[in-house]
Design a protein around this nucleic acid. Sequence first.
DNA 1: GAGCTTGTTCGACAATTGTCGAACAACGGT
DNA 2: ACCGTTGTTCGACAATTGTCGAACAAGCTC
Lengths: 101, 101
Amino acid sequence: MEPYEPDLTDVPVTAVLAALADDVRLQMVRALAEGGEAACGTLDFGVSKATRSHHLKVLREAGLTRTRAAGTSRYVRLRRDEMDQLYPGLLDAVLTPRPPA
Amino acid sequence: MEPYEPDLTDVPVTAVLAALADDVRLQMVRALAEGGEAACGTLDFGVSKATRSHHLKVLREAGLTRTRAAGTSRYVRLRRDEMDQLYPGLLDAVLTPRPPA
DNA sequence: GAGCTTGTTCGACAATTGTCGAACAACGGT
DNA sequence: ACCGTTGTTCGACAATTGTCGAACAAGCTC
């Protein structure tokens, strides 16, 4: 089944913020921002694959990512442009691991 | 007792995001961004004063607000400049009720 | 000091959330 | 056709969170 990927305007800001307000998910988003597209399996951050799948679902349903199936793998990428257009500065502010000061 | 107000660099980004990822708290932040300083009592958004106090505590401990006591009231204000310096674009992206598109 | 106003703190409770292992599904290769 | 790989889904469980009423604290005014 095709994964559900919402229109960004349908997602409340609080949902986007909540999606980003988790350590594991934030690491995932940062990895995607740096590495571009990534297979789900490569986004391992010390959690089980069930948990990983759950987090990727949260990100997807918050409108932060898109998922493309290829073979047995699924490739995830950030919806960077759309996010930047709708919430300029949000991802930039959040993606830098250490405060820009 | 003086309320605890952390150094912004001591607060993990996820805590800031989590603080903003709630409807009531987001309304509070928006009200503060528009109206400047506000007494706790004026930040009524349909929740009890106990809940209101709780949310203000979350915002304060996330480094988003400062609280000043005056008489029986407490005045809350956004730490706008500090936030903008540390996370440029974050508040801007979040404060507009309707997407800027 | 009595009483009112303004907030905070303290349980309590329901709902949500992060986590896991196990079971399942889909695909590719041998 | 059988494995092995890659993800998803399904309970289950612990921890966190949003909410409330009630009790408490601090300050002002009469």
